[in-house]
Computed example of a mutant assay.
Amino acid sequence: MITHLPAALLSALLLAAPTAGAAPTAGPALTMGGVPTAGATPTVGSAPAPATALRLTVTGPAPATTAPTPEGAAPAAPASRTVTLRCDPAGGDHPRAEAACADLDASQGRVDRDSDIACVLLYDPVEVRAEGVWRGRPVSFAREYGNSCELGARTGAVFSF
């Protein structure tokens, strides 16, 4: 029986495949790990691609000094900034929306990616968070980077605000 499994699987795939000249049917895009595979389209016809809307937050870098003030008070907490990024078309209140959307498209929606950029080994932590959807796929990302250089090298223009 196991020797017939590949033939049976091939037959099932051939029966399920559309015949020549048949009209395509709408359905979900082919995905691998949540990312569309090469040649897959999110919709059939002229329907728009799923929306991208992300709420991006950057906290830090920390104050230049961590020593308490003469009155004994701790330094102020790092400043937090939040913007909204929309893509297709690029918009929101992100000051570099087009570049940020291009970086997300190039990495297929991954916020963090490998980089060959060398940064100074200065510890001045920056925390970031991204929440929302990228092309209809949920995004929930949070990470601390050692400094602003590392943040820019690993995320491109996404958190450049």
Rank of each mutant, 00 (worst) to 15 (best):
residue 73 A to M: 04
residue 107 S to P: 07
residue 146 G to E: 13
residue 142 A to Q: 05
residue 161 F to R: 01
residue 4 H to F: 12
residue 127 E to S: 13
residue 13 L to P: 00
residue 150 E to G: 07
residue 125 P to G: 15
residue 127 E to G: 11
residue 67 A to C: 06
residue 27 G to R: 02
residue 84 T to Y: 02
residue 111 V to F: 04
residue 1 M to W: 11
residue 37 T to E: 01
residue 29 A to Q: 05
residue 155 T to A: 03
residue 140 S to M: 07
residue 152 G to L: 10
residue 135 R to S: 00
residue 143 R to A: 06
residue 24 P to H: 03
residue 141 F to M: 14
residue 153 A to N: 07
residue 90 A to D: 09
residue 23 A to N: 11
residue 127 E to R: 14
residue 36 P to F: 01
residue 139 V to S: 02
residue 22 A to W: 07
residue 98 E to H: 07
residue 3 T to A: 15
residue 47 A to H: 08
residue 143 R to I: 02
residue 58 V to S: 01
residue 126 V to M: 08
residue 105 D to C: 08
residue 94 H to M: 05
residue 139 V to K: 00
residue 4 H to Y: 10
residue 9 L to C: 13
residue 70 P to H: 05
residue 18 P to S: 05
residue 157 A to L: 12
residue 45 G to E: 03
residue 48 P to K: 08
residue 70 P to R: 07
residue 53 A to T: 14
residue 159 F to G: 00
residue 84 T to D: 07
residue 1 M to Y: 12
residue 149 C to P: 01
residue 91 G to N: 01
residue 75 P to E: 10
residue 157 A to P: 10
residue 118 A to G: 08
residue 21 G to V: 06
residue 121 L to W: 06
residue 83 V to R: 04
residue 126 V to W: 06
residue 145 Y to T: 03
residue 8 A to Y: 09
residue 139 V to Q: 00
residue 14 L to A: 14
residue 33 G to E: 05
residue 154 R to H: 03
residue 75 P to Y: 11
residue 157 A to H: 14
residue 160 S to I: 02
residue 130 A to V: 00
residue 10 L to Q: 15
residue 34 G to E: 00
residue 105 D to N: 13
residue 102 A to R: 09
residue 22 A to P: 04
residue 46 S to C: 13
residue 43 T to W: 12
residue 140 S to I: 06
residue 92 G to R: 03
residue 127 E to A: 13
residue 149 C to N: 02
residue 53 A to W: 07
residue 54 L to A: 03
residue 78 P to G: 14
residue 94 H to R: 04
residue 98 E to T: 12
residue 68 P to C: 04
residue 116 D to K: 13
residue 146 G to A: 14
residue 69 T to H: 10
residue 2 I to M: 15
residue 95 P to N: 02
residue 31 T to A: 10
residue 137 R to I: 01
residue 79 A to D: 09
residue 39 G to A: 05
residue 49 A to M: 10
residue 105 D to I: 09
residue 118 A to I: 11
residue 55 R to T: 15
residue 61 P to T: 07
residue 114 D to Y: 10
residue 66 T to G: 14
residue 94 H to F: 03
residue 79 A to N: 08
residue 160 S to D: 11
residue 67 A to N: 08
residue 46 S to H: 14
residue 57 T to S: 03
residue 78 P to E: 10
residue 29 A to L: 04
residue 73 A to F: 04
residue 66 T to Q: 15
residue 120 V to S: 11
residue 21 G to A: 08
residue 150 E to L: 15
residue 118 A to T: 11
residue 147 N to T: 11
residue 5 L to V: 15
residue 109 G to T: 06
residue 48 P to I: 06
residue 74 A to G: 02
residue 51 A to E: 14
residue 11 S to H: 09
residue 131 E to H: 09
residue 51 A to W: 02
residue 76 A to D: 08
residue 32 M to P: 00
residue 96 R to K: 13
residue 121 L to E: 06
residue 52 T to E: 05
residue 97 A to I: 01
residue 6 P to H: 12
residue 148 S to Q: 12
residue 140 S to D: 12
residue 109 G to M: 05
residue 85 L to D: 02
residue 40 A to H: 00
residue 9 L to Y: 15
residue 48 P to E: 08
